[in-house]
Design a protein around this nucleic acid. Sequence first.
DNA 1: ATTCAAATAGTCAATTTTGACTATATTATG
DNA 2: CATAATATAGTCAAAATTGACTATTTGAAT
Lengths: 170, 170
Amino acid sequence: MDRELLLLGILREQEMHGYELHEFIDKNLASCTDMKKSTAYYLLKKMEEAGLISQETRQEGNRPPRQVYHLTPAGEAEFQRLLRENLAHYRTAYFTGDIGLVFLDQLDPAEARSLLLKRRAELADELAVAESIPGHPSSLQLVFDHLVYHLRAELAWTDSIIQRLNGSDA
Amino acid sequence: MDRELLLLGILREQEMHGYELHEFIDKNLASCTDMKKSTAYYLLKKMEEAGLISQETRQEGNRPPRQVYHLTPAGEAEFQRLLRENLAHYRTAYFTGDIGLVFLDQLDPAEARSLLLKRRAELADELAVAESIPGHPSSLQLVFDHLVYHLRAELAWTDSIIQRLNGSDA
DNA sequence: ATTCAAATAGTCAATTTTGACTATATTATG
DNA sequence: CATAATATAGTCAAAATTGACTATTTGAAT
């Protein structure tokens, strides 16, 4: 339901067509969800059938016609409901990367260490990117702040694992 | 692929049947993945068809017969590959809870605050549960440590948002 | 000994999600 | 100007995921 909330919330502030919608989420909200383009279209069609949004074919210049979506009153009500539902509950994030850690002792410490150093480098890169995003005046700022806060914690934690491996290596 | 890695890795250490496998993941590795029972069965069947695991019907007492799975050499090779792949890369966790935060300013600060306090309570409960798990001697310890570390960070961050709302409320 | 609840072990249809593909428009490059 | 690359806007069949359901066994309570 969270993805519906996201689509409804964005459309509520500004009518958009499917491509633009996915583009926006992919650029700005990648830390919240990894919704693919085709999923966005699927959800839009589903919500349109449910009467939450209505589409309007719009022609601009000699571009091919695009479907522009906007909220219906029912969609507005659903947005309000989903927003409160989301805010009132804590949903844990899943750490797929921990699955590998479960079997870390199956590798010799030297190889484990070198693999995790590669992981650490990717993480550090992501953090650098996140930190370089200039302050956003919008409500997206919270999301960016959270991302940076989280990535810093992850980096420290990853370093602590690598540290342990250094020990068992000596 | 991470779920395959998880199933292969567990089966590698101890042969199991589908129900037991899902049970184990659900109890111990809920912070890594939220795989449903039917998904586990689907993946087991798929991996069996791919020759990564083989099943054996086993009868115990007068219970109905159960399918017990164990790794094939191809499965062992795939495990090794997936393990290195997983360890060498950083996969971000997704914060579905942040979707609500994007639209936080659509509510009046008092209501937003009360909703987030409910969320905070759930988070604090989860943290308490995670902290109460006694030290595990196995390789699962890393996962539990990570979970506690992460939940503490999340709690602090959630408190910081609530704090901001207190300010704008006064 | 009987009934009730919980644990065990799955199956299957329906839903959700995705990757691969199509097609046009705009911009850049030589 | 031709053409190559990229951005725009989607569609669709295949794959993954799930919720709801069935059915037996074990343990507990009466």
